[in-house]
């Protein structure tokens, strides 16, 4: 499959929940998974060529998800971003889409919702 995924969330429990909800095809040996605890780490991973797909939280210390999306947009980055957040306000969802996110998923993440989202954006 050769897919490089970054899971960015300041909560280790949340990162584990996202990884657990991934489709079985994503547990393939060809898939590389990088974990990031804040936006800065996620951007570092992207710049190191470790991100084709990024799962991104919004409310995080140091650099939040909105700031990451702004930076990626400014760089015209070639990465698919799926925001997974507890910040479910309609305005927050509108803004992340405007900043280039491919989809928004509310926390706590559910396996069926994550897999449907990945299907809708053509990744499974």
């Amino acid at each position: 499959m050769g897919l490089k995924i970054v899971v960015c969330d300041d909560s280790s429990m949340s990162r584990k929940m996202i990884v657990r909800a991934l489709p079985s095809a994503f547990r393939d040996e060809d898939v590389t998974l990088t974990q990031a605890a804040n936006g800065l780490e996620a951007l570092e991973a992207y710049h190191a060529g470790k991100a084709d797909l990024m799962f991104l939280d919004l409310t995080m210390p140091q650099m939040d998800g909105f700031q990451v999306l702004e930076r990626l947009k400014a760089e015209d980055a070639n990465v698919i971003v799926v925001v997974i957040s507890a910040d479910i306000q309609p305005e927050a969802q509108r803004r992340v889409k405007e900043l280039g996110a491919a989809a928004f998923i509310r926390k706590p993440v559910r396996e069926d919702v994550l897999q449907e989202t990945l299907h809708n954006i053509g990744l499974v």
Partner: peptide, 24 residues
């Protein structure tokens, strides 16, 4: 707490029609 407060912020945001910014 983050998830619970996200729901509370959503309720407030709908009431005042403005984005509510949450801390960690």
């Amino acid at each position: 707490m983050n998830i619970a407060m996200g729901q509370a912020a959503d309720r407030l945001a709908r009431l005042i029609d403005t984005l509510v910014i949450l801390s960690v």
